[in-house]
Write a protein that binds this DNA or RNA. Sequence first.
RNA 1: GCCGGAGUGGCGGAAUGGUAGACGCGCACGACUCAAAAUCGUGUCUCGCAAGGGGUGUGGGUUCAAGUCCCACCUCCGGCACCA
Length: 833
Amino acid sequence: MQDKYNHQEIEIKWQKKWQEQNLYKTVDEVKGKKNFYALMEFPYPSGNLHIGHWYAFAVPDIFVRMKRMQNYNVMFPIGFDSFGLPAENAAIKHGVDPRKWTYENITYMEKQLQSMGNSFDWSRKIITSDPEYYKWTQWLFLKLYEKGLAYKKKASVNWCPSCQTVLANEQVIAGKCERCETEVSQKDLEQWFFKTTAYAEKLLNGLKDLKWPNSIKESQKNWIGKSEGTEISFKLKRNNAPQPPLNLRGGERSEGELSIKVFTTRVDTLFGVTYLVLAPEHPLISKLTNQIKNLKEIEKYIKETKQKTEIERTDVKKEKTGVKLNGINAINPANGEEVPVFVADYVLGNYGTGAVMAVPAHDDRDFEFAKKYKLAIREVITGGDISTEAYTGEGVLMNSEDFNGTKSEEAREKITKKFGKKIIKYRLRDWLISRQRYWGCPIPVVYDPEGKSHSIPEKNLPWLLPEDVDLTSKNQSPLATSKELKERVEKIFGKDWTPEVDTMDTFVDSSWYFLRYTDPKNEKEFADKEKMKEWIPVNRYSGGAEHTNMHLLYSRFFHKALFDLGLVNEDEPFTERINRGLILGPDGQKMSKSKGNVIDPDKQVKSVGADTVRMYLAFIGPFNEEGQYPWDLGGIVGIRRFLEKVWKIAQKIQNKPTKKQKEESYPATQNLELENLLHKTIKKVSEDIENYKFNTAISAMMIFINELEKKLEHTPEVSKGAFDTFLKLLAPFAPHITEQIWSQLHLQSESTTKSIHLEKWPEYDELKIKEKNIVIAVQINGKIRAQFETNIDIKENQAKEKALSLIKIQKWLTGKKIKKIIFVPNKIINFVV
RNA sequence: GCCGGAGUGGCGGAAUGGUAGACGCGCACGACUCAAAAUCGUGUCUCGCAAGGGGUGUGGGUUCAAGUCCCACCUCCGGCACCA
């Protein structure tokens, strides 16, 4: 046996062996085993594995390995989310082919991933930029297209001037591009959308039964933004100007008159309306041009609004502005009162009806606006003071004719019934999936000479990404520069037919990748339905918190849509979700090259070993609490010391003379104590891994090893058995060193030893966990005064006597009367005086 | 402003309402060594020689007993934000 723990030699050796033996290859069914699908978000092939990848993959591998030892048939796949902007940007900057850049990165990162010692099933590897994969992304797109769930429309969309492409709503964070943090602007473009709004209610309802962190559920709930309210129609007052044409959009004719529809959640304040506000985008404005007396002023205001960025426009702190539509008045259906109409950019064009009824007495925004433009403020809800600010709470109605004295909630129902209709609105928008970029999945659509869109037939899939493109061309999608693509379309479809030149958002690729893992090589279907039945829904999915309202919402939408199309068996894709935390630099800051605080995992692995790095990451804090943990260069030595200790004990055990030592010559209690601790450790480690509390599992193992080290001399036989069991507990954390020790201790040639990772997970014995002796704390009024050791399950009376005799010596109770005695079995006895 | 989460040693962090600070780092002292490193041992919330007192963001409360439950507040992190 080697006497030095040489991590490099051991790790390379076993990684090679596991690969040769196909140790982690998963088949779809194993008799007598339950399937378990453990999924981690697959990486983008950026070119280098960082410590965050290690955290994301190596730590959950501990759980995966335990599950496998617990007789589950575990699938733990890996792949690459390989379409995306960085490849294209690298291509533009360095003149390399994005394809080459991506695939070279994948090759390199695969090697890095191997060094983790993870139990990935590489045979199921998928790469989203492979035509074999994106063929099915396109096929699924067409299924949605056929059902009307993918559609094209002209809309004002978010445009990132730096990335030169549009962005989905979810990819705009506080008015800035999620990727490059450039301020986004608005552009009117014809774009492809997925109809996520059709699933708003289902996405909301589905959250209830998911075993997901509360934070994600709440965040998605907010993002979907359901609000129930009332739609009210305000007729416009007829005036002497000529009537507009009949076939209008935006405004609606009722009894020959135009009206403005507003959406409100506080219809109980209807009698307090003193004006209406239209969003600058409201279509009615352009239909009223011959009635608006100050048209020039209005047009100027609208133009100014358009020039503002999204950030400027939606800045809550900004002073509200607006212009009155002279000559236009609306009639409050509740009391017949005429109210003025304003256009103001604090009302959003793309939410609700794009128009609101303003109740300055009971809405902060309306209050501010009314004060500025000296508009009437009428109190209709009692319970507040509206002299300096709006009262937005509930109350009892006043100044509301028949409804005076009614409570807000009741009034909402009654007023809705009489003057409006109940309506539900969602904040969620449709998912914009077009991207004006090259390195993505081509949208499988062509246009006929009239410009009408048509599906590309299945036999022409995969619809290949062309290669003869100019990546630097401005103001058009790179695909538009491909001669080959143009010719391909004309050859297949006819003259003057043209290709769609946008590619899909990469989030489309990742919305179904976990389905492909179940059947990665299938050439006839995106995945076999029977195979999906074995694995879907995913049992446990772990990843980063940044995907809450993007990937996780998109996947849920996609899956629900596929379910309704009969293509998958379940309507939710992921049963349990775990959000991991974040590893910070040693300075407690986010790692970044510019700060120079980046930890290179390769260097760490070289110096202390993969087992140590894995375990240190698991030890740094609870994995599932989204915490932020600084990488402590000092702290990692604690784990290394622990593994060195394990190594040393293994040596001692192996080098012991083989002749049996007489156990009787040692105190029997030592053996019992060790067994007791071992079984407690099995329980603790098993439960903690199950709950992703790897940090406390490691701490329990450290306690065990420290005890074992002390007892080794006195209990050689029991220690050996206990150590053997302990190794299995440690195996998921430190797969290499345990495999090495295991193979040596079992004195077989290394080639024939059964891997420790194929061993059965230890089970604890409830009887052995039970303590023989315990310490009972004696309290007076809840304060600890003394403690005594006694046998377990001591009766209350005995405990009381013992405690009292202890207390008597100390005179704590002299002259005091005992009012009450609280006895907590095996823990505490408390005297209340 | 709204929604979620968190505040515990010098640091990362432990604690089914039942002995706060497990485990690890760091630090101090000791052993080994010519010496250092490594390793091992002891100690390490705080005031106090001790007995004892105080202590989990702040202030209240419930309870025999509160880091844990309730109320109010403060701070920090994440998300949403003129959504009517």
